[in-house]
């Protein structure tokens, strides 16, 4: 599997008030062609900023260091026509489809605009292709839907339209930022199945951002866990539960209530998740970690390969295989 996207030591600072504030501090990640990578973390961990960096959609005045390569080309320095050409090779699906669609334009206008203006496809032909695509995303009566407006569609249907729109330009990479978080759980299952199927059929690579470890496990090949602007663990998606490599991952799994059993007490993680700008000099998770030692406070761990993945924990080797058992007993 060759690398389609390679993030190397990506650091991003955003302007907040008068000063610069880090939101990513050294994110390193690869996404292979046709590979689905999950990016899991709590709020402020930097997962959305990672996707926005790849899409070159960072807010005005953002400072980017490190490198983002797409198909061998450095993305951070692209300008003008090159940037537009690059953006046609990626597509994004967001959490709230309503915030990303013009409410006063019909679904038909929304889906065909790009084809008609940028590629000069005649309206009839563009609409035919849009109807075809709506059928692919599980919306059968496409001709009628094209005449409808966003407010006439349910959240689930609108998210399907967004997926159709994302596929229209035949991208190579899909950035899906919590695409089902705002949907009902039954609709989520449905939309995720669709996304998974289409992605596999088309050999599309995907960066799937979610706060739900189980969901990432179900549709991704590999999962990376983010904390305070860094990736703290990365390995095969289905191994995160049984063999977590970082105490944070193990703690996250343990903290979640279980649908199959009532716990006397949940294994809550003390404190609150930190953002990159709040991270202490040592390990960012140290003050919430049940395994932390003195050196964890002072020494910032690097993301080191371990087993079939990697972990940003000084004690990773030593704790291997015990984490998921121990955390829930703490």
């Amino acid at each position: 599997m060759s690398g389609l996207v390679e993030l190397d030591g990506l650091e991003v600072d955003l302007r907040v008030g008068g000063s610069m504030r880090p939101v990513l501090s050294g994110t390193t990640l690869q996404i292979g062609r046709g590979e689905a990578v999950g990016l899991v973390g709590e709020s402020g961990s930097g997962k959305s900023m990672t996707a926005r960096s790849i899409a070159r959609l960072l807010p005005e005045g953002a400072e980017v260091r490190g490198s983002i390569r797409f198909d061998g080309t450095e993305v951070t320095s692209l300008r003008g026509a090159d940037l537009r050409a690059y953006r046609r090779r990626i597509a994004m699906v967001f959490q709230d489809p309503r915030a990303h669609v013009n409410p006063v334009r019909s679904i038909g206008d929304f889906l065909t605009e790009e084809l008609r203006t940028n590629e000069g496809v005649p309206r009839a032909e563009a609409e035919r292709r849009a109807i075809e695509l709506l059928d692919v995303v599980g919306i059968p009566d496409g001709a009628r839907r094209l005449r409808q407006y966003p407010h006439e569609l349910s959240g689930g249907l609108l998210q399907r339209v967004m997926i159709a729109s994302a596929l229209l330009s035949e991208p190579e990479l899909l950035l899906a930022d919590e695409p089902t978080t705002a949907l009902d759980v039954t609709t989520q299952s449905d939309v995720m199945a669709l996304l998974d199927e289409l992605r596999r059929e088309r050999g599309l690579a995907m960066l799937f951002i979610t706060h739900d470890l189980e969901l990432a496990g179900a549709v991704c090949d590999r999962t990376a866990v983010m904390y305070a602007g860094q990736i703290v663990e990365e390995q095969a998606a289905d191994a995160l539960y049984t063999d977590p490599l970082h105490p944070y991952t193990a703690a996250l799994v343990a903290a979640r209530p279980d649908i199959d059993a009532t716990a006397a007490r949940l294994a809550a993680i003390p404190g609150r998740p930190l953002s990159a700008f709040e991270a202490p000099p040592g390990c960012a998770f140290a003050d919430r970690c049940p395994f932390s030692e003195d050196r964890c406070e002072s020494e910032r761990p690097a993301l080191m390969p371990i087993a079939a993945g990697s972990s940003r924990c000084l004690r990773a080797e030593e704790l291997r295989g015990r984490l998921h058992l121990t955390v829930s007993d703490v």
Binding site: G138, I139, P140, G156, L157, R160, V185, T186, Q188, S189, D190, V191, M192, A193, L194, D196, E197, D212, E214, L215, G217, A218, V219, D238, Y241, I259
Partner: peptide
């Protein structure tokens, strides 16, 4: 419909 280890999303008819 609740994701859990070993779960796969299911497609339903709209």
């Amino acid at each position: 419909s609740v994701p859990r280890p070993g779960w796969k999303p299911q497609r339903r008819q709209v």
